[in-house]
Design a protein around this nucleic acid. Sequence first.
DNA 1: TTCAGCAATG
Length: 599
Amino acid sequence: MNAKKLLRSSHFYLIPPIIPNPSRRAHRFISFLGPSILATKTSVINSYCERYMLNEARQLFDEIPERDVVAWTAMITGYTSCGRHHQAWMLFRNMTREESVEPNSFTISSVLKACKGLESCPSGAMVHGLAIKYGLDGSLYVENTLMDMYATCSASMDEACMVFHQMHMTNEVSWTTMITAYTHRGDGFSGLRVFRHMLQEEVELNPYSCSIAIRACAATGYYSFGKQIRALVIKYGLESNLPIGNSIVDMYCRCHSLSEANQYFLEMFQRDLTTWNTLIAGFERSGSIGSLYIFSQMVSQGLSPNCFTFTSLAAACASMTVLSSGQQVHGGIIRRGFERNLALANALLDMYAKCGNIADSYKIFSEMPLRDVVSWTSMMIGYGTHGYGKEAIGLFDQMVDSGIRPDEVVFVGVLSACSHAGLVGEGLKYFNSMVTGYGITPNQEIYGCVVDLLGRAGKVREAYELIENMPFKPDESVWGALLGACKAYGDSNLGRVAAQNLLDLRPSCTETYVILSNIYAADGKWGEFAKTRKLIRRMGDRKEAGRSWIEVRNEVYTFVVGEKVGPHIELVYRALKILVQQMKEAGYVPDSDYLLYDF
DNA sequence: TTCAGCAATG
């Protein structure tokens, strides 16, 4: 039945909410109706909002002479459910401040969702205050949305926990909200603690809490608990629930069990696009080329890729440095009009940078309508690895100017860019600004970068002093950076200290012994060199051979030192000979210090 | 109230 027929129907006043397709004529008709049918108009507002026709809904709302709290709430809820949080908030303020309409529990929970969307804790706290004032804070519905708002907007979980502990009655939604909040904040262990508590309290198990608990297992790597939850899922007959199944696939992938993930995937009763995307992303994270095969299977089954699929594909092309495949992925994205998706654009610009095409990487970056911290970091690291240290630093400053707060990863990016470009002073300036300007405590990785920065510039002693003054025990990354610097500058005394510390942390690492023996050899300490070599021989372990690869005409060729098999290998060696000859003619003197002693 | 994607030095 269309709107016209519906409006002509004598039953119209009895069945107002079902309007399949409200038209402008219908709107004009409704506007003629008097204030006596306020409830009808409110229902029509709801119908408009359900169909994302917010302008029509608002026009009708504005035309109502005496609006009650239900009409206000319908409009606020409409805005919130369509993601127009700011408009929902403004309308709520209008309602309470100017029109002095008293909110009910529906209004409060709806506007709390808007506060959550705006990530505005002060607004949420104000609504909390109003809820107390009007005695609505005892409603389970209000309490659950309050908890969700605080958990999303506040820096800590304190407020959400306080609401939760003060509740006289909780339901499965309250518990699930708490588990979700912890898990989404990256504290999966606390999420699982709440889930365990929920089981002890014998709260009814539902698909929501199960899937988020499995997600928490995936995030923490708590594989055994994940398997226990899977058993519970079977016991309660929830196996056919798709989000649960998808979470299980994700958990197997993140717990490094791709074969189990694949097996479970094949056994699933039903799969959706998320299932496929989960498996593709899982294989991609593990660096498996399988991600591309799974994608082709997905397409052959008639499924259409979305932004999530393409993001994983772009990341796969980046880690495998296959530019032509990456370009095909880019083409697919343009054809489907997904270019404006932020995470996808970030993945693409990273792909181009990793595949050596920094110009296209910057093109994507410059054309992005919106950038987040990941966009800036990816571009910065791209510039840094291509030798554009100054440009990388420039991006850092621009990023800060644009109002984005740097995180640890940004500092790793800017420090490594400084390190490669020999910008020691600049790098130290950024390092010092971390605590003073941004309140970020440097972690092991950051210290490793600064040690590398100093070490590459020949300031090996300063690097060691920095390590000695670190506020925590240095880990492998820090000592590894120092050992690298000692190798580059032939400092055998500090090299021994670095190697010893590294070996204390990982005693069976042959590579450390190899580097140390080379440092001794370069420093002419042949006695120490012989001793270290003997140790390596006794360990009987060989260093893993480095492998290079190149993509030529859609084929990837790999090479290992000394390899004599494979297609066109004679041609490769002939070309290499010519190149070496040309390098010598150009005046290149090879650094053969380590050539004799390497394995 | 649940499930899928993007950045890290040595």
